[in-house]
Design a protein around this nucleic acid. Structure first.
Length: 830
DNA sequence: ATCTTTCTAGTTTTT
DNA sequence: CTAGAAAGAT
């Protein structure tokens, strides 16, 4: 205990003005037992961002200014009373419920500035956790803008995973790891699981490694070790072998000295539980804890926070900021319950609501608020704005997804002609397959666009290959990396050779690289692979001698050239080869910014992203999930159809909770808009290659009539007139609720149909030309039920005969288009 | 060992 | 429909 306390003081002393000693002489803060801890800490000193223990208040900085004017600091004046409360309520647990666009980040960063200004804690005594690297970066920048250079001393500002990794490296030995453990990405994880499955003779056809990976992730999200996996859960995979496979996987990870993302949290939990003194250190160190996007925390993260925030009773200076209405990551383990339960979890917690919205106009806010009010499990907030009413969100029905893209494209061009910046326009889709049609259309009309969220830089094939080479150089025991590149480019080292290496490596319990080294000297291998393998090992040995003498980016270039990897793509004639070569160049360039190879690799494993330059003005196309936290003048929300949005799958798997999460997603979408929100739905959409008739989303019924305007698709549109009649159909479906999705919703949701939907759709109806509506209703309610064999005519598919009838759905064999499932109301008697 | 064909499955995504 | 992966052919 004593030792622990003393070591804890070390950084404190350093902080009081003394410069840290030169690198080589650094005394490890946690030098209790393991020599490798010391080793690691030397490593850290070199890595970015540097550990700055010598923070001193800047002369022109905030602290100084605050001290000078003994009254209330200037920066508080820029806040509204609630935000100010969020900043100034420093002691005890605080939950800030921050609605969309209410200045959440501002409150959070100002709070950090405030703590520093008052001298309540030093920068390195504040723990600030975010979910994404982007959020962390943004927070750092904004704190920096507030307090100057001091923000760099925020060494505990980062993602849950980055901070856990940092803690774990310091105490790796205590959880059976070496401090230089590797962090596996999803790809490695799956390949490792495949090996485990094969070793257990489990058919990875029937039980795919991906599925197991998902389960294991799920367990880790819930903080469950293999032994703690509930029996029922374990049953569900490979006839009850789930938990056992999980255990085997963990064993393999330990052997490889590796962790996956989930382990970063799991292992730090274990570290804290098994080593109360270590935990106590951190509890003492972090005088103030701030958590962003609390609604997205999973159970493991919640447990982690609970442990680390338990200082002396009643002194949990924990401030969580979040919005229960924006919790959209339930499917990957986030627990809305965490935020709903905050007051019970942290007794005496103060709850502060930020409800003044600075982003959207009145109508948009009203529409969004009304929509979300259909959810039940929420803490409840009422957003308001002082800004004007603005334009009403619009609702447009179109014939099919192609017309949707066409129509939105035209709309954007019109805005663009009126000097609307393309940067301020976004198309937010539910699922990424929706993006393609927009891309195709935009390419056609020459509208510059940018797809956000696609495969990220570091996830690309060529980048992963290149990284695997570098990992092998830096880390000869990295089996997964070695395996990845052993035959890339082709060297004639195929399955047979790899199999042999594996067997030998397992028998001798040594890394693959070492096994290769031994086997090359033997006669086990045929001459050809033997020579190739010897060459490869020789290359790696040579590159490895250069680690300390050559800058890492030059080394990388050399490795890629000499291995033949660059050549492989140069001789590749496929169209994407040039792009891949460019990416490799970009990778080498990105490496220059790092002090050495190791710190680069650490950065990459945690921060799987690279920033791309903003060149030209472009429209953004992204998923609703990807749009969280962003804002745009104009937002297009296409694809509001049952089955797509809300997603049928979510409904099937999560029931009512899933529906509410989807609705929150709709809320997130609407609240991204500052001035204009434009909702679209199509009557037909191609799903898995075949055209399906679709039904407008029930969320459309959740919108308030008074704040939404129904508009026709642009008149130039090919199906303009159908657009109107299709929209009239909205009422037909909206009021007879015979769709499968609706029935399911009613089954899962006790109070379904509370009348709201019906009431609202009537409003929408009043805007429609009566004649068309009458016609459509007459046709639909006239009960013209088709029977098997009847001849029918469909606008898109032409003539056909009915093969089967299922409620209002018909299976029709069309003469030209083949067999399709269509809704009864879309066909006429032929 | 590698190239070609066949099959199958198919949200959302960060770390 | 279409990308990616696994089995089959050379």
């Amino acid at each position: 205990m004593n030792a622990a306390r003393l070591t804890f003081l070390t950084p404190l002393l350093l902080a009081c003005g003394e410069r840290p000693p030169p690198k080589g002489e650094v005394k490890a803060p946690q030098s209790r037992d393991s020599p490798s801890v010391l080793l690691y800490d030397r490593r850290i000193m070199k890595s970015p961002p540097p550990e700055i223990d010598d923070y001193a208040p800047q002369t022109g900085g905030l602290a100084a200014r605050a001290a000078a004017s003994a009254g209330r600091p200037r920066y508080l004046d820029a806040l509204n009373p609630e935000q100010r409360a969020a900043v100034e309520t420093l002691d005890g647990p605080v939950l800030v419920l921050a609605g969309a666009g209410t200045g959440k980040t501002r409150a959070l960063t100002t709070r950090i500035g405030h703590i520093l200004a008052l001298g309540k804690a030093r920068a390195y005594e504040i723990l600030a956790v975010t979910f994404t690297n982007k959020a962390a970066r943004e927070m750092r920048q904004r704190v920096e803008a507030l307090v100057g250079e001091g923000a760099q001393a925020m060494q505990w500002l980062g993602t849950f995973h980055a901070i856990s990794a940092k803690i774990l490296r310091r105490h790796a030995e205590l959880v059976g790891l070496k401090p230089n453990f590797t962090i596996l990405d999803v790809d490695d994880q799956i390949r490792l699981l495949k090996q485990v499955l094969r070793a257990e003779n489990i058919d990875d056809k029937r039980w795919p490694a991906r599925a197991l990976a998902m389960r294991i992730d799920g367990w880790k999200n819930r903080g469950l070790t293999p032994a703690q996996v509930p029996a029922g859960d374990a049953e569900s995979f490979a006839n009850g072998k789930g938990a056992a496979l999980y255990a085997l996987y963990q064993e393999r990870l330990k052997v490889l000295n590796a962790v996956d993302f989930g382990d970063l949290l799991m292992e730090s939990l274990r570290l804290f539980r098994d080593n109360p003194d270590v935990l106590a250190d951190y509890q003492r160190r972090f005088k103030y804890i701030l958590v962003d996007e609390y609604q997205d925390t999973n159970i493991a993260q919640y447990l982690w926070l609970r442990l680390i925030s338990q200082r002396a009773p009643g002194k949990q200076n924990l401030c969580c900021v979040g919005d229960d209405d924006q919790s959209v990551y339930g499917w990957r383990g986030a627990e809305v319950e965490n935020i709903l339960r905050f007051e019970q979890d942290f007794p005496g917690a103060k709850v502060i609501r930020l409800e003044r919205n600075y982003r959207s106009t009145g109508h948009i806010l009203a529409a969004a608020s009304h929509l979300i009010s259909h959810n039940e499990g929420r803490l409840g907030k009422t957003l308001f704005t002082d800004g004007g009413e603005g334009e009403k969100p619009t609702l447009t029905g179109v014939w099919d997804s192609q017309e949707e893209a066409r129509s939105i494209g035209e709309d954007i061009e019109q805005l663009s002609r009126k000097d609307h910046s393309l940067e301020e326009i976004a198309i937010l889709v539910r699922a990424s397959f929706q993006m393609r049609e927009f891309e195709e259309r935009f390419v056609e009309i020459g509208l510059p666009y940018r797809v956000i969220g696609g495969p990220r830089f570091y996830e690309r094939l060529e980048i992963r290959d290149a990284l695997a080479y570098l990992r092998c150089v830096a880390q000869p025991a990295d089996d997964l990396a070695f395996e990845r590149i052993i035959n890339t480019p082709k060297r004639g080292l195929g399955d047979a050779t790899l199999q042999m290496l594996h067997e030998y490596a397992r028998r001798e319990a040594i890394p693959l690289m070492q096994a290769a080294r031994v086997l090359v000297e033997s006669e086990e291998l045929k001459p050809k692979p033997r020579g190739a393998l010897r060459g490869l090992i020789g290359d790696f040995d040579r590159w490895r001698t250069l680690i300390d003498s050559k800058p890492q980016h030059e080394l990388a270039e050399q490795v890629l050239d000499e291995s033949g990897y660059t050549e492989m793509w140069r001789s590749d004639k496929t169209p994407e080869a040039t792009g891949r070569l460019d990416n490799l160049k970009e990778l080498v360039r990105a490496m220059e910014a790092f002090p050495d190879l190791e710190s680069f690799l650490e950065h990459v494993s945690l921060v799987m992203e690279a920033d791309s330059a903003v060149d030209q003005e472009r429209v953004s196309i992204m998923t609703l999930h990807g749009a969280k936290g962003l804002e745009f003048e104009t937002v297009y929300l296409p694809g509001w159809e049952e089955g797509l949005f809300p997603s049928q799958r979510t409904l099937d798997e999560q029931g009512r909770a899933g529906l509410e999460e989807e609705r929150r997603l709709a809320y997130v979408g609407l609240t991204r808009a500052k001035r204009r929100a434009k909702i679209y739905f199509a009557s037909n959409r191609r799903i898995h290659g075949l055209w399906q008739a679709t039904v407008p989303s029930r969320f459309i019924d959740n919108l308030p009539t008074d704040n939404v305007e129904v508009v026709e698709a642009p008149s130039g549109s090919q199906y303009g007139s159908y657009g109107v009649s299709r929209f009239a159909n909205l009422d037909v479906y909206g009021s007879d609720y015979s769709t499968p999705g609706w029935k399911r919703a009613q089954a899962t949701r006790g109070d379904a149909g509370r009348g709201g939907a019906a009431r609202e759709s009537r409003g929408a109806r009043s805007k429609q030309p009566v004649t068309i509506e009458g016609e459509v209703i007459a046709r639909s309610s006239g009960g013209s039920h088709f029977s098997v064999g009847a001849r029918v005519f469909h606008l898109k598919f032409g003539p056909g005969s009915v093969a089967a009838v299922d409620g209002n759905k018909l299976t029709v064999d069309f003469d030209k288009a083949g067999r399709k499932m269509v809704l009864e109301s879309f066909v006429d008697a032929g």
